[in-house]
Design a protein around this nucleic acid. Structure first.
Lengths: 244, 244
DNA sequence: TCCGGTTTGTTCTCGCGTTCACAAACTCTT
DNA sequence: AAGAGTTTGTGAACGCGAGAACAAACCGGA
């Protein structure tokens, strides 16, 4: 798809927008940004299934959201639908991918190749979505040299060289919690400006650096809270086991 | 001082109050619930370091949030602080743990013992926080029998027996995306009412079942979006309107 | 006991996000 | 060509959460 402009109306977006791939708006709400990848995946699924067009209701169902919310989200990107018809799957898919930035390749380094790091290095969902793992780093000499997913584990000391060499701007931290902050500091110093942190600790980074946190135990604890609420609200099975 | 919370129920919550020590209210905002585990971890760290009391400012800094937000969050649980002094670390830690529900043990099953499942099974953050992995399930016969973290991998067919036997209410799905929905259906049918889903797909579950999603590639895509914004914004600032 | 310093708990305001509802716009049939 | 049927895009209302600001409460010293 070198020129994915199908039937585009000349109403809203200027011709230069589509030609150069420039985004129409500059301010997309964070909540919308977080949902765009979900829409993108739903569109890829529809595309693989051979669907050419879809309505907002169908896409919303596939993405697991409200259709009104989906339409409003898409409206921040531009008017890519056709009233009375719906959305062209391929066209919308390309537009969202371009907006997110996954039409280009993002080199990524992973630091901390323990159990989780292994899983991340082997995770196909990264490479299939515009992310290319260019280096695996670990401070433990016993792990260095080992090969995971066709990539050798390098000493963490090489982080500056590798980040510069591959122009890496996104780093993944999968180290134990005590090491995470110093790893983050070194990543930032090397030039990384976005960090995905799996270590269960709060990272402090300078202004301009984005950090997203994935905390497995926190997710479970949130579930536990609601689970506890359920069992307290409906003590159907256990009778009167209240009180400690 | 009087506690007319949201004068909602005429049945005062003081009944359970006396039993459990101070069973609080019924309506804690979701945003607060999501932060309670963070506070809990910060308190555990403080406790390990031997700190006896802390102010809202200190705890907020350790948790990476605003101090006003922290105090407001804690106020939903009750008045566990002392004005002019701060919070007793051990006491507040217990109160939050009890509120979340991690003072009791939560049996958990993990389905799909691939790379990620292995990492989850070995993840110490689960067992150290009230979650006990009671079964590892996989549909692949070649994986069955293998032992991970001292626990054998069982056939997925045994899910009903294992869930009933251990009274499991929380399940973790780490299967490939195509299998996730059927696994979820079977988990729910077996009695699981909370699911932590790592598969990159939208799960549909009946009313009353909680699902939380952890999607690694989505997190990276959100970072990529902001990263793209940075690289688009910065070069333009140095020299206006660089021609394409 | 009284006073100054400190910190919590709460109220108020503001902005963001969600949802409803509907006009605009498109297709299809007659 | 016109009307009926769909579906998008968006304006407006509403609810929730974030943050500032302040009174109430507590401790320690004199």
């Amino acid at each position: 798809m070198t020129s994915p402009r199908n039937a585009r109306t000349e109403t809203s977006a200027t011709a230069a927008d589509v030609a150069t791939g420039k985004a129409p708006d500059r301010d997309i709400p964070e909540a919308t940004v977080a949902r765009l990848p979900v829409y993108l995946r739903a569109l890829v699924n529809l595309s693989d299934r051979g669907t050419a067009t879809c309505s907002s209701g169908e896409l919303a169902a596939a993405a697991g959201v409200n259709s009104a919310k989906l339409r409003k989200d898409l409206s921040y990107l531009g008017s890519y639908g056709t009233r009375g018809v719906g959305y062209d799957v391929e066209y919308l898919r390309y537009q969202i991918a371009r907006e997110i930035g996954v039409t280009q390749d993002w080199p990524v380094v992973i630091v901390g190749i323990g159990n989780l790091g292994h899983a991340l290095a082997n995770f196909s969902g990264f490479s299939s979505r515009g992310f290319r793992i260019v280096a695996l780093l670990d401070a433990d000499p016993r792990r260095q040299g080992e090969s995971v997913g066709g990539l050798g584990i390098r000493p963490f000391e090489e982080v500056e060289v590798l980040v510069r060499e591959h122009a890496v701007s996104i780093g993944v931290i999968a180290t134990p919690a005590p090491a995470a902050q110093s790893v983050a500091d070194r990543l930032v110093a090397a030039g990384v400006t976005s960090i995905l942190n799996f270590a269960p600790t709060v990272l402090s980074v300078p202004e301009g650096v984005d950090v997203r946190k994935v905390d497995l135990s926190i997710e479970l604890q949130i579930l536990a809270y609601h689970e506890q609420r359920k069992s307290l609200a409906e003590p159907a099975e256990l009778d009167g086991a209240v009180g400690a």
